[in-house]
Design a protein around this nucleic acid. Structure first.
Length: 328
DNA sequence: AAAAACTGCAACCGCCAGATA
DNA sequence: CTATCTGGCGGTTGCAGTTTT
């Protein structure tokens, strides 16, 4: 029995919630707000449910911002992409899909997407063709990091890009395998969580309007180190960065979740299109705007930039300074 | 028409980590 | 430092509705 099981002192109901119970919980929440679930049974008159059950009911059903209904094609592909990187981290996946709960996504995955992939001969755990799985496991973490040439941010989802050292697919395999198996994988995807349980990052916001122009979730690369290479595959050892998570500054909108700046000490460099597929993003240094990513743009040259930020297009220089890339 | 099998989904269980006493 | 509480998470279960036999 887990420590967190519902207490049995009081006779508490289990099973499906009745409309009356929903009403009582809603009344409680409208009066006391969300939080301190353990006190709900005390304060919500006549509601004989444990706090944990109340929390779940609120998050999965009563919350006003839930979308419900069938998943769109777009949502489906987001889930597939994210699952490829994150594995069964449903809460983190849900944080990228506004209005969807982890439970909902988990159910959708287990009842639908998993079968779909298997039908296509793809292993739902590795996202690889079923016959190709054997070599993946057992590759050491150090090797991944060594071999990991760069990340690609594509449609808001983290992807590995192909490069010379990935030609045989081993690094990618290892990466994907690791992401599924290791709960402390080097990429932390989530950038922030709002008080009602999921974040309000840019992907979420732009998703509703124009997915193609959403900013990459660079915040997800926080506290991690990665080696980058140029497009030809030769290693650019001077271009390794520590990418730190930023915090939303009070003067900016939610989009500051995505602010990123790179700090001193690296050579002028080119970000290849396959590395970051960004759009609607300005690249600013202290000198002002030094570049701009547009949809399908392949190269952005950043010259003499000792410090620059990746910001929403049209924002002011220096407005976004939250995320700092440290050259190692 | 009835029983069996299947499916989707809401809810529960047990573990973990962080906060607090 | 330890014990306890609490929120959060992923895995699993069980029920109700639907489809198939």
């Amino acid at each position: 029995m887990g420590r967190h099981s519902c207490p049995v002192k009081q006779k508490l109901r289990k099973g499906l919630w009745s409309p009356e119970e929903d009403e009582k919980l809603l009344q409680y929440i409208s009066r006391f707000g969300v939080g301190c679930w353990s006190s709900v049974p005390k304060h919500a008159a006549g509601l004989q449910r444990c706090g944990k059950s109340c929390r779940l009911r609120w998050i999965n059903y009563l919350r006003p911002d839930l979308k419900r209904g069938t998943f769109s094609q777009q949502e489906e592909s987001i889930i597939l992409d994210l699952h490829q990187v994150l594995g069964n981290r449903w809460a983190q996946i849900a944080s990228q899909l506004p209005g969807r709960t982890d439970n909902e996504i988990k159910n959708f995955w287990n009842s639908c997407l998993k079968k779909k992939l298997m039908k296509q001969g793809i292993d739902p755990n590795t996202h690889k063709p079923v016959s190709n799985n054997a070599c993946v496991h057992g590759k050491k973490m150090e090797n991944f990091e060594k071999d990991l040439d760069f990340f690609s941010v594509n449609n808001g989802g983290l992807m590995l890009s192909s490069s010379s050292s990935m030609e045989n697919g081993s690094t990618r395999d290892a990466f994907l395998s690791k992401s599924v198996c290791d709960p402390l994988f080097l990429v932390e995807y989530q950038s922030g969580i709002d008080p009602i349980g999921y974040n309000s990052n840019l992907l979420a916001q732009h998703h509703e309007t124009n997915y193609e122009t959403s900013l990459p979730n660079l915040a997800c690369l926080d506290h991690q180190t990665a080696d980058f290479s140029d497009h030809s595959g030769s290693k650019m050892t001077t271009n390794s960065f520590m990418i730190n998570e930023g915090r939303e500054s009070s003067s900016t909108t939610n989009s500051s979740n995505m602010n990123t700046s790179l700090s001193a000490g690296f050579q002028p460099m080119t970000f290849e299109g396959e590395m970051f597929q960004l759009s609607g993003v300005d690249v600013k240094s202290e000198q002002g705007c030094v570049g701009q990513w547009q949809h399908d743009m392949h190269d952005v040259q950043v010259n003499n930039a000792s410090d620059f930020s990746i910001c929403p297009m049209g924002s002011l220089p220096g407005e976004y300074t939250d995320h700092v890339f440290h050259h190692i």
